[in-house]
Write a protein that binds this DNA or RNA. Structure first.
Lengths: 185, 185
DNA sequence: ACCAGATACTTTGACTTCAAACAGTATTGA
DNA sequence: TCAATACTGTTTGAAGTCAAAGTATCTGGT
């Protein structure tokens, strides 16, 4: 085989950055770049695993929230829980309702609110989806437990550094790493 | 690992998994979940930083490839380099051409091929974009150099485990993916 | 030389996301 | 009371992604 083997593109990018005199940001650059690549692979695999269950990962996430809430929840709650735009939630709910995995309900006292209630079919689908993801994705990352936890730990630090505060205004920093920036007044 | 104070949603998810008896996959689950969240934050920030330059991160990535290739490159090369679908490349190239940051060229010998050539304006934009990302994103991850490199290392191991081989059929899996360069130019 | 199959790109359509504008409902305060 | 403001959800439109089908061109085997 020819000797100009194809190098890891990410390593190549690192060298380019250094060659341009940006060695001080080269580590961060490839960190972001490889995160994007891993995300791409992860999502492709997840959608592949969920395809037989007729779910995308986005719709799976909605169902999981409902699965763990026996009561119907407001759509606005889903937007906060999943950190999605309201319009995205409306869109996902439309699809899932059309599939028969959930139903819209009226809020008993506040007529602005629409509630989402998972159906029996939805429950069954979600169970299957979770089982499949557990066995084919979450346990197959190719990492040791230590590495996995190290990664989660680093992500937690990043989230806190970026002011990714837990939902509504809690002042306590989860990782106790950094004070939570007072984002969004 | 902290306990159950005001819900970091990801920690809460971990507890749910354990409560269901899935403790063996709970680590992988929150690893995937927090990766998605960090990706979400990262992309939002990147697009925010690039907005004044009238670029999205997706279009920025195309320009960076062209920026480091003085010669025009085939669109199919971009698809491989960025791991994108051909149709996505066509779409991005259309936008960038409309913005005047690149031009389509004919391949001298193979008339199937379309080449993309960055323009002077495109070069200037790319330089600005890189400068902004370097100073406002890549160097602001909120991590130490050691943590950043550890993260890259773990990503490399994941990509390797998932068969994310460099480009076209490179069969040699030397340790190129493992340790992050010890730079020190 | 010629035709079958590969390659390169574009087009069309589905999906997911956000932003902005809109409509209906609740809350607040003057 | 009632008008200004806030909140909830939907609609519409733009961006980006993929899959599948279509067009044009090249290549290879006979």
């Amino acid at each position: 085989m020819p000797k100009h083997w194809n190098r890891d593109p990410i390593q190549a990018a690192y060298d380019l950055w250094v060659a341009k005199g940006w060695e001080d940001t080269a580590d961060g650059m490839i960190a972001v770049t490889s995160l994007l690549r891993v995300h791409q692979l992860l999502m492709a695999r997840a959608d592949e695993i969920l395809a037989p269950v007729e779910l995308s990962f986005a719709r799976y996430e909605v169902l999981v929230v409902l699965y763990f809430n026996e009561d119907a929840v407001p759509l606005s709650y889903l937007a906060k829980a999943l950190q999605l735009h309201q319009a995205s939630v409306t869109n996902l709910i439309n699809k899932l309702e059309k599939q028969g995995y959930l139903e819209r309900r009226a809020h008993p006292s506040d007529r602005r609110v629409t509630l989402a209630q998972i159906t029996r079919t939805g429950r069954a689908r979600t169970r299957t989806a979770i089982r499949r993801l557990n066995s084919e994705l979450f346990s197959q990352l190719g990492l040791t437990v230590e590495e996995t936890r190290a990664m989660v730990s680093i992500f937690a630090k990043m989230r806190h550094a970026w002011g990714d505060t837990p939902q509504d205004g809690g002042t306590d920093a989860t990782g106790a790493l950094l004070p939570v920036a007072q984002s969004t007044a």
